[in-house]
Structures are given as structure tokens and as C-alpha cells.
Design a protein around this nucleic acid. Structure first.
Lengths: 233, 233
DNA sequence: AGGGGTCTCTAACATAGGTTAATTTTTAGT
DNA sequence: ACTAAAAATTAACCTATGTTAGAGACCCCT
């Protein structure tokens, strides 16, 4: 077993979770379901709830004073959001895009569970380490790659992250992000995201249409993106 | 006591550390001293050494395939570098800029120490949480602010981080970063960093000359930067 | 089926920031 | 102090990306 997602079980079908795993983790309780476009928590809130995504898509973002925002991450199935080892206000907001099922745990409970040993704590630790690496790579992407490689890189990253929880296969996956949201992830404008996506499409590298992404030429796409998936392991 | 730096003690003078604190943390051993421009570890290395900065300036960066790099952070006195909760290759390199004193600890030892309770573990946890917030804000900075605010924001951040370990006062501090390094931090070119710094100077906001930074008009600088120091707490 | 809203796509134009290259200043080594 | 290398500075030019504005396309609601 490699991922938290398997631990948590699937909201949809349960295919990948066994009764046993559930039994060991019922402290998570029932998942809470949020409608699309709900705000689960806001930056500067002072509670210590931790969210573990069970299904659906979410956005973790920070708003600027001038009303713009930078999306920090798109947490997916099995990702842990809002874990801080210390008290204090949150530094980012979390909102659902699609219908979203999450487990909500207080830090206290999660920490106890982690310290009590067992593989669950290890899963959490892996997930956090990975999210940290994803964040660092995100910075590299925005700081040092042009619009084309940046977009290509992000779509490849998504593909790998989704594959690892069984939500992508053969380079195809569903992605509910709008071009506006994509812009806030990639640090560019909506218009330029649109231009870049059509260039990528014209070059037969990736297509992103109507919520569906399809990698058309992985080899060249990887080259354009300068993508090295090592950081996702 | 708030910061790890106080725990670790000062390489230079010892003013801020007491004998008692040292006695409790001698598992850290003697700090290792690196010459300026040494590489302490490389991305993809597979060891699990964790570095705790005792004095001097360092750069944590990721190199791209095309030879460019993005600097992820400038770890300072008391910062913990390279902590991963999981095995696997490092995702960034660490190099010294100035002479650098660091404690090197294996993950095993550090984790044991953390789990053994006591305030040291808590210090580490705080430090890691803070570094994560700094990383997220760095992404916001590069993704959503223009050259001026971005540069201003970084200089303000440095000032706060240095103040909190007693290395800055009255808006003045020493900063050994070259404009080239600054460019790799801020995701811009050396030339444009130069232009931006002189604009900031001309506007009487900050001056950065010969390794010395001086905040000339904090109120306006904060406004230009869109700086809200909450994330550093 | 109609209508308002969001999303996508395009075009024409504007500019912040990148590129190249040369000059001056600072720093470090002998 | 003398020199070589590194760093800062400036200028002229260029382009990737931002801005503004509008027209279609799509989707949800009743």
C-alpha cells in the first residue's frame, strides 16, 4: 500500500479500500460532503481542523490585498490539507470546485493517531513530504519556466498525481479546472492560458477541452515541460 | 523562548545562548564549518542528513535541465534544512554563500529527539511550519506580484526573519546576496533586479548597496509590497 | 425553449520584463 | 598596490505576456 487514498477508501465505489482498513481508521468518522464552490476554511481562520480529501477537487489559495489570488495547490484524493504543527491562523483558504468529500480531523486527534504508531502516521508523513515537494516544484515552475513549459509541466504533474490514485489512465483524465483557475495556479492571465492551451493543442502535445485532458505526445510534452517526475515519488 | 536559534546557540558570540540550553542539546554535537560557496548536499542525493543553520547564509535551490535554477529559500540562523519524513532523493541542493556553520543530524536522531518530548521537538515543528508558510508566500510573490512589489516583499521578509534572530535592527541588515542570486530567488533576470533596486532606491523606499540593506520608508514599502507579515508568525 | 450567467476564444494593442552587450566598480588574491 | 575576476550598472532593443474588449459557446435554471 502506498497512498493515503487507499487508506481512506473511495467515496464513490470503495473498490480500492477493504473493510479492514476502514475498521482501523474509523476515527476519521464519516466524510463530510460539500457542494461545488463551497469555502471550507479561510486564510486567517484560527481553528485547527485538518482536511483529508476523499473525493472531488479542491483549491488551496492565498488572496492578495488587491483582490488577486495565487492558487497554491489543487488537493486531490488522499491529500492532507491544513496540517500545521503549530497554532496560529491559517495561511490559505480552501474551496471546493466539484462536489467534495473530506474527512475533518482536529490536529490533536491526528497527532495522537500519528504518535500511536502504525502505518497511518507514516501515510500522513509521506503525504506531507510529497505536498511539500510539489509546492517547491510549483515555485520552480512559476519562477523559471515560460508559459508553454509551465502549462505542460502542470498538466503532466496532474496526470501523475491522478494516476497514482487511479483517476487517470493512458494519459487521459477529467479535470474540472477553468482556464481562469488554471491562470491563478500558473501565475498568468486567463487570456494567455487560452493561447497557450491552443498552441499545445496545435502542436499535438496535449489537448484540454471540456474538462477532459488528453496527453497526445508524451515524449515531446515532457521535453517541452522539462518534466522530471522524481519529485513526485 | 521562541526560536530554534536560541536553542542552538550562537556561533559567533554565544550571547543569546545559555550553558543550560547547550547541555540539553549536546546531541547536536559541534557545528561543522563550511567555506563560502561550498555545496553541502545536492538534489537527488540519497542520504538523510538534516542541517540546522547555526550561522551564515545558505541557498536552497533546484536546478533545471537547461542549467537555470530557482532558489527555494535562503535558510538563516535556526532554520532546519532537508527534513523529510520519508526516504528518497533530496529535491534541492544546499550551498553556502558566506562561511556557514551548521549542525548535521541524521533523521533518525532528530526524530527520536522530537518524539522524546521536551521543547526541542516543538521548536523543530514550529520551524518547519514556518518554512512551509514562507515557501507558500514565495510562490504567491513570484506568481502574482510585479518586479517592484516582489523585490520589496522579499526585502521586508528578510528583515523580519533576521530581526527575529537578532540580526537586524532599525530596518538595517547585512545581506550577502548578489543581484544574480536575488534574480534566482525572485524569478527574474539580473538586469531587471538591478533596475528594480535602483527604482526602489530612487523612490526612497529601500536601499541595497554593498551587502547592506536599509529600509528607508517602511510604511510606503509595505504598501508597495503588499506585505502582511502574518505568515511569519 | 428562453435567458442570464459563466466560460472560451480571438483580435488589436500596450508594456513589463528579457536579451545582449559594453562600461564601470568592487572584491579578492598575490 | 597590481591584477584578474566577479559584481553592478546602463543603454538599446526585442518579445512574451498582459490588457481590453467583444463575440460565440455552453450550461443551468425555471
Amino acid at each position: 500500500m502506498q497512498t493515503l487514498s487507499q487508506f481512506i477508501g473511495s467515496h464513490h465505489s470503495g473498490e480500492t479500500s477493504s473493510k479492514n482498513e476502514w475498521a482501523n481508521n474509523d476515527f476519521l468518522g464519516t466524510a463530510k460532503i460539500y457542494k461545488p464552490h463551497s469555502v471550507l476554511c479561510r486564510q486567517d481562520d484560527d481553528d485547527d481542523t485538518i482536511f483529508i480529501v476523499k473525493s472531488g477537487w479542491a483549491l488551496l489559495y492565498r488572496g492578495l490585498l488587491d483582490g488577486e489570488r495565487q492558487i497554491i495547490d489543487t488537493p486531490l484524493w488522499g491529500d492532507v490539507v491544513g496540517f500545521r504543527s503549530v497554532d496560529g491562523p491559517r495561511f490559505a483558504s480552501l474551496a471546493s470546485i466539484t462536489e467534495l468529500a473530506v474527512h475533518e480531523v482536529s490536529r490533536k486527534v491526528l497527532v495522537e493517531r500519528i504518535l500511536s504508531g502504525g502505518s497511518f502516521g507514516n501515510k500522513i508523513a509521506c503525504s506531507l513530504a510529497r505536498l511539500n515537494a510539489i509546492l517547491a516544484e510549483h515555485l520552480v515552475n512559476v519562477g523559471r519556466r515560460n508559459a508553454m513549459s509551465r502549462t505542460a509541466h502542470f498538466l503532466l504533474e496532474l496526470e501523475e498525481r491522478l494516476s497514482s490514485v487511479g483517476l487517470s489512465a493512458h494519459g487521459r483524465y477529467e479535470c474540472p479546472l477553468t482556464q481562469h483557475e488554471l491562470a491563478d495556479i500558473l501565475g498568468m492571465t486567463t487570456v494567455h492560458v487560452n493561447r497557450t492551451l491552443s498552441e499545445l493543442r496545435k502542436a499535438d502535445l496535449v489537448s484540454f477541452k471540456a474538462g477532459h485532458v488528453e496527453i497526445l505526445n508524451r515524449k515531446n510534452l515532457v521535453k517541452v515541460a522539462g518534466f522530471d517526475n522524481e519529485y513526485l515519488r
